[in-house]
Nucleic acid binder design. Sequence first.
DNA 1: CATGAATGAGACTTCATTCAT
DNA 2: TATGAATGAAGTCTCATTCAT
Lengths: 198, 198, 198, 198
Amino acid sequence: MPKVVLEYKEEAKRRIVKHAMKLFSERGYYQTRMIDIANSMGVSKGAIYQYFSSKYEILIAVLEAHTTLREQEVRSFLDSGLSSLATGEFFDRMLAIRMSTPPLGPDIFREAARNKSLMEWFRINSEKWLQEFVDLLNEQKKDGVIRSGVDTEPLARGILALRDGLYSSLSLGTDIAKARTAWVEIMRILLKENLDEA
Amino acid sequence: MPKVVLEYKEEAKRRIVKHAMKLFSERGYYQTRMIDIANSMGVSKGAIYQYFSSKYEILIAVLEAHTTLREQEVRSFLDSGLSSLATGEFFDRMLAIRMSTPPLGPDIFREAARNKSLMEWFRINSEKWLQEFVDLLNEQKKDGVIRSGVDTEPLARGILALRDGLYSSLSLGTDIAKARTAWVEIMRILLKENLDEA
Amino acid sequence: MPKVVLEYKEEAKRRIVKHAMKLFSERGYYQTRMIDIANSMGVSKGAIYQYFSSKYEILIAVLEAHTTLREQEVRSFLDSGLSSLATGEFFDRMLAIRMSTPPLGPDIFREAARNKSLMEWFRINSEKWLQEFVDLLNEQKKDGVIRSGVDTEPLARGILALRDGLYSSLSLGTDIAKARTAWVEIMRILLKENLDEA
Amino acid sequence: MPKVVLEYKEEAKRRIVKHAMKLFSERGYYQTRMIDIANSMGVSKGAIYQYFSSKYEILIAVLEAHTTLREQEVRSFLDSGLSSLATGEFFDRMLAIRMSTPPLGPDIFREAARNKSLMEWFRINSEKWLQEFVDLLNEQKKDGVIRSGVDTEPLARGILALRDGLYSSLSLGTDIAKARTAWVEIMRILLKENLDEA
DNA sequence: CATGAATGAGACTTCATTCAT
DNA sequence: TATGAATGAAGTCTCATTCAT
């Protein structure tokens, strides 16, 4: 197949994945019909089957793309350094990135769990990201900014869990301002304990 | 209708809700067929319609029951006092309670959102529980155990978000031991900052 | 079985038939559920099965009872003599009788058509009644009241058809007063032609 | 949407309505399953839902089409003039037209009664047709062919009721020849009274 | 390549009938 | 006998997928 056609196919798949991801995130996998994806793109149902052989294939592609997009979030987190972590601006910036790649519901992960290699890839990714965060904390520790008694791995895990917990509380009706304040307060305590206590 | 019959009907509804809750939690609302609930109970699907006029009615009842059951968790949290909060035993006890009423996916909340009064009831419950937790922290603060500079509302919100974030990470494959350690470490820092800093 | 019990059973069957006939006439056979009949009588579904082994058996009994009740109408028709036929009072009297045994829809006859002997009984009844009407007209003819050139059998058939056509137009919204006037006018012409033309 | 597609959709709907009308008329609305309509057309049941969103929508369309087809019958009636009315040929011609659009049972009208505007359209149509017939009789009356003492509105109503009564007697087993004779005899009397009595 | 009509498996729901109490 | 909970066949409707144009 000529290169141009291949590229076109890739571009088409990307467009499908983009629209499907939005719909899956908004309505869930089972509540999204093939025709919803097609309508959202302004094409016909049949066209989608030129690029994906089933709805399940789209789901797999959506999850892969989702993970890739989420890497951005991780990078921002890591690139920010630790100093700005305990600020409302950081919370908002992270939230904006997360919203641009909204969370996928458990229905999607349940379906995807049939695909062992995909699940393994997820796990490895998550661990890699966590480890990078831990490494960053360890550097700070080595520099004496975090005192030696603190275990950085649980700290990293806790910070990420706090972030996820606050973001998910938003979809249950919590006010953004209140979630932001909680983040700032908790992070201040956590980092004060670790950074300032000289 | 005689009282005995009414009681039987209530008991039957409770049994249906129990089985439905388990299935909804495991597979999600749309992936649970009426026949799954029936099979799980060892009855025919027709029987269920004696007690609920539609699958949606079951969903509403499941959510109400879920909220009621979750109140237990809240009570344990509040009854524990603050001293045991930063322990692995506390984490495990809470986790056991949460597992006995496993989380419901967003598909269920999406459907239930059609029921305005139910949603309002949820919101009011959540706020009430959060407020009780805040009150408890405020007492500690009044007693001087938490120093005056700390805002207890964000603190309470953050602790609950941390708990939720850690629990949900478990379903994505995180090791329980690691989540427990994270809880203990973070809570130690949070409470040390507030309680021990004399 | 003792006679008293038999009589009780007959009475019970009659009550069921009465309620079923009303409902079948109002809603049709398929739109009437067994529980509707039971509720209408203030008994339970199960009780009905003590007296009829199926819904179809009730239908047969309803049709038999209906035919028997309709005989009243026929008798009134025949007993009135011919002189009062062309009056609004006659029309109203017949209508009242017909309303007391409201018409059964085609769904019921369609079902009953499976029962050959019942259908045969209907046919024979109808013919018998028509013949009695014809005989009456023939007597009038013999007395010279109806002139010899008129064929009484078609006349009888036409008068009955006119009656049925007018009554059924009522259920499609025709005003009773207008149907009554039509009856009187037409009957006046028909009988004037036959009776007065001396 | 291109015109060609629209036309195809219209044609498909017409085909569905045609088959549904036949089945509704033969078996009644509730006894006709969607799969019966589909089988009758040689398509799958799913296909029908491309054109009608529910069985009830088909019912509405069937009733509209039925009324339109019935207009033919009315036109034949009116176009025939009054002279041929009292003939067996007229009876047969009308019967053929009616059979080509067989009557719909009360179950259908009961269902359709939910649709107020449709019911209103029926009523207006019926009245319009009756009025046209009355106008025709009035013309004859003005020409002196019907004498002045006769009220044409009841006469028209009676003739239509006679026709309906005779046609419906056919479905209860009456011999066509006998119904035809009754029509001719009665109409002869009615029109002789009105036309010949010079 | 794109379209959308058609297919048919499968979900929810109804209701005549049975049967333990 | 009476009750009403339970059964399961059957009906309406949905939607992923196929395929002729």
